[in-house]
Nucleic acid binder design. Structure first.
Lengths: 105, 105
DNA sequence: GTAAAGTAGTTTGTAGCGCAAACCGAAGGA
DNA sequence: TCCTTCGGTTTGCGCTACAAACTACTTTAC
């Protein structure tokens, strides 16, 4: 019993915050573009503004992204970028998933 | 705008039923062993009985697994196996994830 | 000037989920 | 006979994802 235990336990170790597809999309985008504003991310990910807003709050709370609000002319703009921690976490997640899905089993 | 749209939209297309790590573990297990009973799956996945039970119900409702209850001697036993639909769905999920995570971006 | 229509998001409400604790019926001892 | 174990299922709770409704402006139309 103990010898055969936990064959697939590694799947359970994934970072659930990044595992959520919507959030993965956001982080993947920020991973490659380095910086982006709210509307760009909204368009790229096809998320609604409300949905995006709440996901961003969670990512920020986790320390994975930084949110900076500035005025461009007279309109407010929200700039997003991955933190160092966010980059590391995203990289780790990708590596884990890659290992998981390229393995024969 | 329309040319740059939806770079990462494919992530959102994943089968959420399989995307849940607990359920992925269950399906991965059934994918390789062909048939298993409740306790074996419980031990392998380290899920609690209650948790496993509810995930199995969902997988069954989706038509991904079949649940057969038999008596072995005098004690009831629950046998699980992937349906054809389940195998197809699992395979598709794995292929999608593999493509997603082996791609450079 | 002021009403209506954007713009750029945030907050609220709701349905559904994952999880473990509590529960249940049958079987096997003490 | 009671009670403990076995093999699960049901219940209850906290959290989540999502969209609708809302806020706080700015711009356009009249």
């Amino acid at each position: 019993m103990s010898a055969e235990k936990q064959v697939n336990y590694r799947v359970a170790e994934v970072d659930k915050l990044i595992h959520e597809p919507a959030r993965y999309s956001i982080m993947a985008l920020l991973f490659v573009v380095e910086q982006a504003d709210f509307l760009f991310v909204k368009n790229q990910t096809c998320l609604t503004a409300g949905n995006l807003s709440s996901h961003l709050s969670k990512l920020e709370a986790a320390g994975y992204i930084s949110i900076k609000k500035k005025f461009v002319g007279k309109t407010p703009k929200t700039f997003l970028k991955l933190t160092k921690m966010g980059r590391i976490a995203f990289d780790a997640y990708r590596n884990k998933m890659k290992a998981l899905f390229t393995a024969s089993f």
